[in-house]
Design a binder for these strands. Structure first.
Length: 579
DNA sequence: GCCGTTTTCGGCCCGACTGTTTTCAGTCG
């Protein structure tokens, strides 16, 4: 959803980055204020450009200075302060801040004392062994920086990885750790547990009474390619895929506090620690304790930490400092979705689709095993190259479904299709044929290159079609591989509220489409959602758990999720739709 | 730079690891 506020957010991100360098401090309060402003800007629903300086200042996280910069941006297209910093710290120098191990203080000292202005300068200084002459730096630092430069491209933390890549690895590692006799429990934390769509690294916490044994076994795991650093309780490695993994080993009695701590986000934890301080306590990875005496208030479970702080338990996907701490304090957190809330799956394929891998019978049997009350079969409609299904074959499937209905009386089977949204919003077959189907989802599978206006009109047109019940994977993005179509998201959300057309939350890890930012943006709008797996194989029916986390992250209330409704209500909703 | 107030300046979160120190600063998460 590219719009003016997105470029504004990007400018503040750059401002924060440059300010850390300018002040020579990663803990710069000014930089943090810019980051808070970023959050305030991106979560503001409305036209920021229409607000006066005074109105801007009324927004939490925006003060006099930021308000002025926002106005400046809308009036001139830029921010003078940013231009000034850009001139002071050219891109070549800025690039060096991405080198692991090189912080702002050292970088500025290298610039002032050795005249380092870019990567080439630094490399030359390192090779000439001049860096060791700078006070506070030595031969080891030279070695470390040379290595950091050498492996700059493929590994390390510069490149965020899609969740679809990191999550399976994290699960394997956790399972391998839990299989160790020395390990009580293990859990992946960090941004992965918060269910961010990309991650810079994987954080794993393990509970053990014998940390050295765990570290030794961890370092010996086959996936470990390189050891970044290793201590008694904390170790960082790079895996064979280039992903960094940080393992923290704690005593079992500290497990909950450690998981809380390492799950973050940073901003969420800062809020929590402030709350602890107000109560005369200190919160760290070992627990919540009384400042001074060290008497433990809570440490064994995350639940206990939140409870002691007077907060409802905050599910990890919500921990982004988007107002969840305040909401938890006031008892108005959204009721999070649970897997068992889902009463049916409304987007699944069978072998009828060219890319489906499980036959109809198996798909229906698996859905029944999951205890679903209803299931919609949605094979690809005819316009999709290779994989699409003709009217005749769809009619044949209807007969098969009819026969299966007798065998699964407890589950309502809906015959549907996944329609293709054409460049102008038209969909497959003809209206009379589509009306014979029980349930249609419509999604974008082509023409990703159209401009934002046309894409928006295209989606709005599909939503107005009375035979379209839901829009599948709204943008068509593949995380880390293909950007989705650009859309005026607010217009789409308004249309969804107006027409009652549901928006799908696609559970495939590579999609997670609708994005959580958009879900969050819609939190107070009367939009109907469906959480679907888009399964092409029976094992992919299990993806529903990811859709649940995605919805949670987006503050989606289960009362607005159509496939959380009991069958009677769901079917009544289907019948009621205007046509 | 924001916030809040005992209104206009002071506070703003915490610890491990590393490398360079002679007691700690810088970086990272």
């Amino acid at each position: 959803m590219a719009g003016p506020s997105d470029s504004l957010v990007a400018l503040f991100r750059e401002l924060a980055h440059l300010t850390v360098l300018d002040e020579g401090s990663p803990a710069s309060f000014r930089a943090r204020a810019y980051e808070n402003a970023m959050e305030a800007i991106s979560s503001y629903r409305g036209d920021l450009g229409a607000l006066s300086e005074k109105e801007l200042q009324a927004i939490d996280g925006i003060g006099r200075s930021t308000a002025r910069k926002v106005r400046e941006f809308f009036e001139t297209g830029t921010i003078a302060k940013l231009e000034e910093l850009r001139a002071k710290y050219p891109p070549g120098l800025l690039e060096l801040t991405r080198l692991p191990g090189l912080g702002p203080k050292t970088l500025l000292r290298l610039r002032d004392e050795l005249g380092v202005r870019n990567l080439e300068d630094l490399q030359a200084a390192l090779e000439a062994r001049k860096v060791r002459d700078v006070r506070g730096l030595g031969a080891k630092t030279e070695e470390k920086l040379l290595q950091a430069i050498a492996r700059r491209e493929p590994t390390g933390k510069e490149q965020r990885r899609p969740i679809a890549e990191a999550l399976p690895l994290a699960r394997e590692l956790v399972a391998a750790l839990e299989a160790l006799p020395a390990v009580d429990r293990a859990l992946y934390c960090g941004s992965l547990r918060r269910f961010r769509e990309t991650v810079a690294d994987v954080d794993v916490v393990a509970a053990s009474a014998e940390p050295p044994a765990v570290m030794e076994a961890f370092l010996a795991m086959p996936t470990v390619r390189e050891v970044v650093r290793s201590g008694e309780t904390r170790t960082s490695v790079v895996t064979s895929t280039g992903l960094q993994v940080d393992l923290r080993v704690v005593e079992p009695r500290h497990f909950g506090a450690a998981c809380q701590y390492f799950t973050g986000s940073k901003a969420h934890n800062i809020k929590l620690r402030q709350r602890a301080l107000e109560r005369g306590w200190t919160l760290n990875e070992y627990g919540l304790s009384v400042t001074g005496t060290g008497k433990v208030v809570a440490s064994e479970s995350e639940e206990a930490v939140y409870e002691a702080l007077g907060l409802a338990f905050i599910p990890p996907p919500l921990r982004e400092d988007r107002g969840e701490v305040e909401a938890a304090a006031e008892g108005r957190l959204p009721r999070s979705l649970r897997l068992e809330d889902l009463r049916g799956d409304l987007h699944v394929h069978t072998t009828l689709s060219g890319d489906g891998r499980s036959p109809l019978e198996d798909v229906v049997a698996s859905a029944a095993e999951r205890g679903y009350d209803y299931l919609a079969l949605t094979d690809h409609a005819e316009d999709l190259a290779f994989n699409g299904v003709s009217r005749e074959r769809l009619a044949g499937q209807k007969t098969e479904i009819e026969a299966l209905r007798g065998r699964y009386p407890g589950m309502t089977l809906l015959q549907g299709a996944e329609l293709n949204v054409g460049p102008d919003g038209g969909v497959d077959y003809d209206e009379a044929f589509r009306r014979q189907l029980d349930w249609c989802v419509a999604g974008v599978h082509s023409h990703f290159e159209l401009d934002r206006d046309r894409q928006t009109r295209r989606i709005l047109a599909a939503m107005e079609d009375p035979t379209v019940h839901a829009i599948a994977h709204l943008t068509g993005r593949r995380i880390g591989r293909r950007a989705g179509i650009e859309l005026d998201v607010d217009a789409v959300l308004r249309k969804a509220a107006e027409t009652g057309t549901a928006l799908e939350i696609n559970s495939a890890l590579g999609r997670l489409d609708v994005a959580s930012e958009v879900l969050h943006r819609a939190r107070d709008l009367p939009v109907t959602w469906v959480v679907s797996t888009d399964a092409h194989h029976v094992r992919e029916l299990a993806r529903m758990e990811w859709g649940v986390l995605q919805a949670t992250r987006g503050w989606v209330d289960p009362s607005r999720v159509a496939n959380c409704w009991p069958r009677d209500r769901f079917l009544a909703w289907l019948r009621e739709r205007p046509s």
